[in-house]
Design a binder for these strands. Structure first.
Lengths: 224, 224
DNA sequence: ACCTGAACACCGTTCAAGT
DNA sequence: ACCTGAACACCGTTCAAGT
């Protein structure tokens, strides 16, 4: 039992209870009354710790991301392979996505002007920063080795990679993935391989002439 | 005014009213009372046309997808360029996504076992079929010309392309896209170029040896 | 048959009162 | 200071009654 007035321990307990509720039964079962009941406190008390349900949710998300990054950073530090980078990050993020779903996106929340408590917002910004820093440093290392097509704007590369990460996470979190027999591992590795192959410098295959930017009539025509 | 008992016209009117509500004010403003009020009918009447709010939403989505495909199919029929294909589909879908957001995904709803009215489900399955048929026919045409790397499983290719389409749509529908200055057009074209370049057959750039499948130690190492 | 709208159920949020 | 829980607000859904 948490003693009366121990706000730090109580806050953790609420987060823990809410987390298990979310994991076990999904978002629709995450109700403030149920959180209060499982935490052994009154309904109103939850609101003295978190301003709204959304605030509670954001705090849970921030905590989960920190956990993810604590696991991820050591792996990324020693990593030199762009495909592996993609696979490892995508797989970690998929697990977070499976819990928190489409409601929250680390790069969206961290960048946005939502009504979050400043502390939570800062925590999310920090997490996003850790993730971006890790990815950027690998891209830079790759660019220095001349393998990665450094000509493309890093923002574009990051947007493409992150969009694919979230898109794949979404795919395998929805019933969509039951439409074919491929596993997550097969699919992410194929995605990683294809993307990196497309990004990497080198001779342009066949009809392509390697103009990586806007051009109304592209040069990848099948005929002619 | 719709005359008493004209269920066909009334149904259309409800869908139209709900659609404008969704477009103008977003999902949170789509409330059954407001739909009834704007349609000039009683709250209970809405429920004689649509079994639940979700059913109404799915019907709106199905209608919007039909509209999208009516626009898309003629364009796709004469299309031979894989990059253009990606750009055109992604852009159309982004507009749908901006309205209906993450709640519904054509390939998820069509494949799933949700509690939709059979007619709506059938309509969604048909839409998904139209989209997949169009894409597949272009991939096949490309494979015949020997440009597209037909070796890769078409399911994998489709999953990757569709995941990126939804990921990009999500990116540009969230505040995330404000984090950099690139437009939708720039980004989708870059994505299309990179993906198709990665998928296309041809000499493998630099250290790559073109093994497109699972391999724990990938060969895209930066060093060694 | 089709339509009505008051009533119910559910859940996020508030706040005056308790310790 | 911290906690309580009844009460309020809101909105999806139902159903007995109306035409």
């Amino acid at each position: 039992m948490i003693r009366w007035g121990d706000r730090v321990a109580r806050r953790s307990a609420i987060l823990a209870v809410a987390g298990s509720l979310l994991r076990e039964q999904g978002l629709s079962a995450l109700q403030m009354r149920e959180v209060a009941r499982r935490a052994g406190i009154a309904l109103g008390t939850v609101y003295t710790y978190f301003p709204t349900k959304e605030g509670l949710y954001a705090a849970m998300y921030a905590q989960r991301l920190d956990e993810m990054l604590d696991e991820l950073e050591p792996k990324l530090a020693s990593m030199t392979d762009l495909e592996e980078l993609f696979v490892v990050i995508a797989t970690s993020y998929r697990d977070v996505y499976a819990e928190f779903g489409k409601e929250l996106d680390i790069l969206a929340v961290a960048g946005g002007r939502s009504n979050l408590a400043p502390e939570i917002r800062d925590q999310l910004v920090a997490s996003a920063g850790r993730l971006l820093a890790a990815v950027r440093s690998i891209l830079v290392r790759a660019a220095e080795k001349g393998i990665y097509a450094g000509a493309a704007d890093p923002d574009l590369v990051l947007t493409l990679l992150w969009s694919t990460v979230t898109g794949l996470a979404d795919h395998f979190t929805s019933i969509r993935h039951e439409m074919h027999r491929h596993t997550w591992d097969d699919t992410v590795r194929f995605a990683a391989h294809t993307l990196i192959r497309g990004l990497v410098e080198g001779p342009v295959p066949q009809a392509f002439s390697g103009m990586p930017q806007i051009d109304a009539e592209s040069d990848a025509r099948i005929e002619g």
